[in-house]
């Protein structure tokens, strides 16, 4: 049974359709990536899974239970957490407070010490800047905060929306390495990316999203080798 399953999910902004009936699955333990051009509906998919954006049709199942109508804040309790597009670091909160917000929905708030430890091991930079205010950090550091914060929820499914966006090349390498590491520690990852090269080489499976529909799916290596994917997303003619 898939950990996450979207069946025929549609989302509309007013009368404009952003997603028209997409279906995808994420199995426990996988890294699945969703690639596509700007405006293809990648972020909308993430927002639908997190419950920020209501569906106009279709069904979302998580861990065997229908969560289509479940309130967004309760989905976090179920084990879905997200590092959103643009990072969404709380500008007026320190690194520590931001990370603590990630654990907001946790019932076992007594045992946060080891989660902080885990985040600071993955991102030593954050450990050095615990009391820096989010709004004054660089893009790469903010991305670390966003991913670390999402991990503080101890998610079963981690949603990462464009973690490489706007980052310097050395940061991009580092972020993708850490994503693999998080996955190897046992967290399932759904990754939305424009950096298809990196995403496909890290992912077990991938979906290609084109103007609101899934046009292709396969394993990471398969899509890396696919000529039309190469042409459209990898910049190889």
């Amino acid at each position: 049974m898939a950990l996450l399953e979207l069946s025929d999910v549609s989302v509309h902004y007013g009368r404009i359709g952003a997603l028209s009936g997409i279906s995808l699955t994420v199995e426990e333990g996988e890294i699945v990536t969703l690639i596509g051009a700007n405006g293809a509906g990648k972020t909308t998919t993430m927002r639908a899974i997190s419950g920020i954006r209501p569906l106009s049709g279709g069904k979302i199942t998580f861990d065997g239970e229908d969560i289509t109508k479940l309130r967004a804040d309760l989905r976090v309790v179920r084990g879905i957490s997200q590092a959103p597009e643009g990072r969404g670091v709380f500008p007026g909160m320190t690194v520590l407070e931001n990370l603590d917000m990630g654990a907001y929905a946790r019932k076992d708030r007594k045992n946060l010490a080891e989660d902080f430890e885990r985040v600071f091991t993955l991102f030593p930079r954050l450990g050095e800047r615990k009391s820096q205010v989010g709004g004054t950090m660089s893009g790469g550091e903010q991305q670390m905060v966003a991913i670390g914060r999402a991990l503080m929820a101890r998610p079963r499914l981690l949603l990462l929306d464009e973690p490489s966006m706007g980052l310097a090349p050395q940061f991009i390498q580092q972020i993708f390495r850490i994503i693999t590491e998080i996955n190897q520690q046992g967290t399932t990852v759904l990754l939305v990316e424009q950096n298809a090269q990196q995403a496909l080489s890290r992912a077990h499976r991938a979906y290609v999203l084109e103007t609101g529909s899934i046009s292709k799916t396969g394993t990471g290596p398969e899509l890396l080798a696919d000529p039309s994917v190469k042409e459209a997303y990898l910049g190889v003619a």
């Binding site: 920020i52 957490s81 959103p84 969404g88 709380f90 929905a105």
Partner: peptide, 17 residues
């Protein structure tokens, strides 16, 4: 404070807005 700073992200943290 989280809702004041960024309502959507606050919701993603499990805050009931």
């Amino acid at each position: 404070r989280a809702v004041a700073q960024d309502p959507d992200t606050a919701t993603l943290m499990g805050v009931n807005k």
